[in-house]
Nucleic acid binder design. Structure first.
Lengths: 125, 125
DNA sequence: TAACTGTATAACCACTTAGTTATATTGTCA
DNA sequence: TGACAATATAACTAAGTGGTTATACAGTTA
């Protein structure tokens, strides 16, 4: 096993690509917004489209992307489709980013609500 | 303060854009590779270019991007420039993604070396 | 000064991506 | 069956991105 001098494994290029792909899914504001809504619970496509103020085809596209990335599950009931979060680590990732950003921009820290995030973090999941 | 039903704050669009931008920086395999090298310590641009097997202009471009994102620091000595990691939370993020991926692809789990990452996680930083 | 080294930048290209509009698909209900 | 509703997909466009090559900019050394 390849280790660097911090005793940390050096990942293969293939593995790096998979990690990068995961970050890429989270690198779009609209998708983050969708995830925020989904955190409140399973939601239909039409309800999501309204909530995030975008068109249905656009939301459907993002949902498919995130589902294929393994972040969402899909459940159909009649002709309504409900999506929900299947990998809650996405919020763990967002929390880490928020803390880091809050630390950097101490001036705008309230935007990221460091305190609130930290308070919630302990009791989630 | 806006909270959803998980008692989690709903971030503003502006904040979501900042978070998304951070994920975007990490969404490229070459940048992740550079970060891996930098984790072993401060490195010059030329040494980095060799290590990641890319051209100097390309590496310089990625370095500038990551520095502007607040992940790297730059130090010049003579006409050699050394970059180093200024925000170690990037590795925290990578660890979370690796664990999540390892869980999903149990078959290819060894690629992400769950065990190794977890073992190291506790004593880092 | 001039030659050389290391890094940054400019210009360009192939490719990807988020969004829109139009349409297809699937399910329900009369 | 037909009309309708919810979702998915196709085709397209404008904007962004990673890489390359060439060149500019500093800093060192003769």
């Amino acid at each position: 096993m390849t280790m660097n001098k911090n005793n940390r494994q050096t990942m293969s290029l293939e593995a790096l690509q998979l990690v990068a792909a995961r970050f890429k899914v989270l690198s779009d504001p609209m998708r983050l917004r969708i995830l925020q809504v989904l955190e409140t619970g399973e939601t239909s496509v039409s309800a999501l489209s309204e909530a995030v103020e975008s068109t249905q085809p656009n939301v459907s596209k993002h949902l498919k992307l995130m589902q294929e990335a393994g972040m969402l599950s899909r459940r159909q009931e009649g002709n309504t489709v409900y999506y929900s979060i299947s990998d809650p680590t996405v919020f763990e990732l967002c929390d880490v980013v928020c803390s880091s950003l809050a630390e950097r921009f101490a001036a705008h820290a309230s935007v990221f609500s460091t305190g609130a995030v930290h308070a919630v973090r302990g009791r989630r999941r």
